[in-house]
Amino acid sequence: MSSESSAVTHNRRDQLRDFLRTRRARLTPGDVGLVAAGRRRTPGLRREEVAVLAGVGVSWYTWLEQGRDINVSAEVLDAIGRALRLTDPERAHLYLLAGLNPPPSGASRDTAVPPELRQLLDAWAPRPALLRDRYWNQLAVNDAARALLGYDDTGHNCLVTFFTSARYRDLHVHWASVAQSVVAAFRADAARAPGDPEFARLIGDLSAVSPEFTELWARHDVGVPLQAVKAVRHPEAGDLFFDLTTLAVTDHPHWYLELYHPRAGSLVVPDPG
């Protein structure tokens, strides 16, 4: 082990020690359903109380909090996280400090778009913009995305629209050549949530109505959404070329903002209004 990696490991364990102590100190026995007994010299739960709540040995938890070199599992970290009432970001932080990759956070079913995000979409006009979730469901679109890219209003799925909307297909010049990369990117997203019934439902429903999707899905190609160029042949505006950039919305896991910007040298996008 290099001196640099040893220093990093030592620093991580120091942070783990301080993190567990501070999380323990902010709780009282009453917060976790325990009866306080005796006078406490310091605030918060005792180590043995956390160990009991998590179902681990007191010595083992003490060693973990001391930052010793011990083996930890995801199951035990989850139990400690529950005992300490950790939030999802705190649980992910605990995983990292313990030297494990944090599990994927659960996808929120809340589709209420904050007004700040809607204002951002509208402010991007006359350039198209849309907000989607991990399943590629449209959560919000601006007027330019409707008028220039052929998207319907919210409540639709981008992948379903891509394969089933005749209007969308007619607008997009290189539809056939990008279909394979679209399906490959969707497979990569689905693979991050194995067993998710919503992905399975979408794949099954689309396979039932689109032979093209079925054929491409059977290839098992995997890709990632990269910065891409979208070419649109609009009946009134003519040929339009956009650079597409996809941004993650950090305070809403599994939400993604797609921003379309006219390519340098292309025609100015007309105001769809």
Rank of each mutant, 00 (worst) to 15 (best):
A107C: 11
R91D: 03
A145R: 02
A74L: 07
Q119E: 12
L171N: 00
A98E: 05
P104R: 11
V141H: 06
G99R: 03
E116S: 15
D110M: 01
P194K: 07
T154F: 12
L120I: 13
V141N: 06
G155W: 11
A98L: 00
R118Q: 12
D170L: 13
G106E: 09
E116T: 14
A83F: 01
A123C: 07
R109Q: 08
L130S: 04
F163E: 02
L100C: 01
N101F: 03
L130F: 15
C158M: 15
D196A: 06
R127A: 10
L120F: 10
A193H: 09
A166Y: 03
T87S: 15
N71G: 13
L120K: 04
T161W: 06
L97A: 02
A112I: 09
A166D: 15
C158F: 12
S108P: 09
P115D: 13
S108D: 07
A185T: 11
Y168H: 13
L171H: 00
L131S: 09
R187S: 09
A125H: 12
L171D: 01
R167C: 04
V141M: 09
H156T: 15
Y135T: 08
P197D: 03
W63H: 10
T161S: 14
D189S: 14
T164P: 09
L84V: 01
V183G: 08
P102G: 01
A179P: 02
N157H: 03
L130W: 12
V182W: 04
V76D: 03
G81E: 03
A166S: 15
A184T: 06
W124N: 12
A185C: 09
T164I: 13
Y135P: 05
Y168T: 01
P128F: 00
R109L: 15
S59T: 15
L64Y: 05
L139W: 05
N157I: 05
L148N: 13
A79H: 10
R146K: 12
A83C: 00
R127W: 15
A123R: 12
V141F: 01
R187A: 07
H174K: 14
G155H: 13
Y151R: 09
L77A: 05
W175D: 08
T111M: 03
L149K: 09
Y168A: 09
A166T: 14
P102D: 01
V182L: 03
N71F: 07
A145M: 10
G155M: 12
L117V: 07
E75L: 06
L139N: 05
W124R: 07
A184N: 12
